[in-house]
Amino acid sequence: MKKLNAVLLALVSVGMTSAAMAQQTQKQPGEFYVGARFGALNLDSDRVGYKNGELYNVDTGFDTLDTGVEIGFMLTQYWETRIYYDYVEASIEGSPGDLYGQSFGSDFLYHFNDLVYAGLGINGTEVGDLSDAMVRATVGHRQFINDQLSWRVEGGVQQGWELDHTESFVNFGLQLWFGEPATVAPKTRPQVEPQQAQPEPQPEPQQPVDSDGDGVVDSNDKCVNTPKNYSVDETGCVMYENEVIREELLVEFDLNSSKVRESAMGAIEEMANFMKEHPQLSITIHGHTDSTGEADYNQWLSERRAKSVGDVLIKRFGIAANRVDYKGHGESQPKVVENSATDRQENRRIEAELKVVNRVPVKR
């Protein structure tokens, strides 16, 4: 048992040291995972169980191992639910051999940010044919190795209401993710109905006639039936000019955070719709920070912010990844001179701009 506990602690240590190579991935509603669990229980000192018809006390102090599986589902961007089943192996106090059992239950988890979550659940824990129904509180930390694989470590307490056991636990898990995030249908912009051509009036005999009323008589008019509200040249053809259409994106961030605020999703969606209307365009997202902190850290943080917005365009609003690029500028390009907390907030941002040039008719 002690050797197995040492292996478990080594696994947790390896997972924690891999944090430097992990990336943060913001999971969306509709994605789910299956995972493996490895943990240890500190059973209540009053916990007993049967073996071969005899009653034994169990060891305390995290000498009980539990291994199992879990299935989880993202209800929203912040709420997650899961069910789990563990096989339990407990040492007998003062005697060789083990007591066996199981632990199963479900949790609701709330994610405070990309790394930390907490939750409540119900649980049934059985050791040596004696079980207790329990309420469990959990605090955990999750890191993503890539978009499909994550690891987590967590701990907490559970309280029984049948046998009044109070117990604590730690465990480590690996999770494999599946499914597509829920998407929001893009807004459609109103379509402008083409103006119907006016019927050509019959000219009066021996009088100059301007059939379409554009100011150019029919004998000199090379473009008939031009709309009356458009300007024309000396040949009666519509005059055109270049019109620049711009779409700008500005998203601000919390201090030391690269997590996209939910309040910014509307502005990002409008940029996504503009890109869908103009599939020839690609976007470069520029990330910035305020002057707080070291320059190297701010450069890294600005790149993370730009990538976070790019991931929302790709994963939530369906923009092709080869049309989205990002670049971090750290603290080198402030929007305003920082003299207050409000100024620093304005500098914690990403910016992007797209424009197209259309030829449009000149109106009178």
Results as ranks from 00 to 15, higher is better:
Arg344Trp: 05
Asn358Lys: 11
Arg344Ser: 15
Arg344Glu: 15
Ser258Thr: 02
Phe274Leu: 09
Lys315Asp: 09
Asp343Ser: 07
Ala352Phe: 01
Ala341Gln: 15
Leu301Ala: 06
Ala295Trp: 04
Glu331Lys: 08
Asn358Met: 07
Asp290Trp: 06
Leu255Cys: 11
Thr284Gln: 10
Ala320Trp: 00
Ile319Gln: 06
Glu252Leu: 05
Glu269Ala: 14
Asp290Arg: 10
Glu294Leu: 09
Asp343Val: 00
Arg359Glu: 15
Glu338Pro: 09
Ser282Glu: 12
Gln299Lys: 09
Val309Phe: 13
Tyr326Gly: 08
Ala267Trp: 00
Leu255Phe: 14
Val312Thr: 11
Asp343Thr: 02
Val309Ile: 13
Gly293Asp: 00
Arg304Ala: 15
Met271Arg: 10
Val309Pro: 12
Tyr326Ser: 08
Gln345Leu: 15
Gly330Asn: 07
Asn322Ala: 10
Lys259Ser: 10
Val336Leu: 00
Phe274Asn: 11
Asp311Arg: 13
His286Gln: 12
Ser257Cys: 09
Pro279Val: 05
Arg359Thr: 12
Thr292Pro: 03
Arg261Ile: 03
Val356Met: 08
Glu331Leu: 02
Asn339Gly: 13
Glu346Gln: 15
Asn347Cys: 01
Glu294His: 08
Glu277Cys: 06
Glu303Trp: 02
Val260Cys: 01
His278Leu: 06
Ala341Tyr: 06
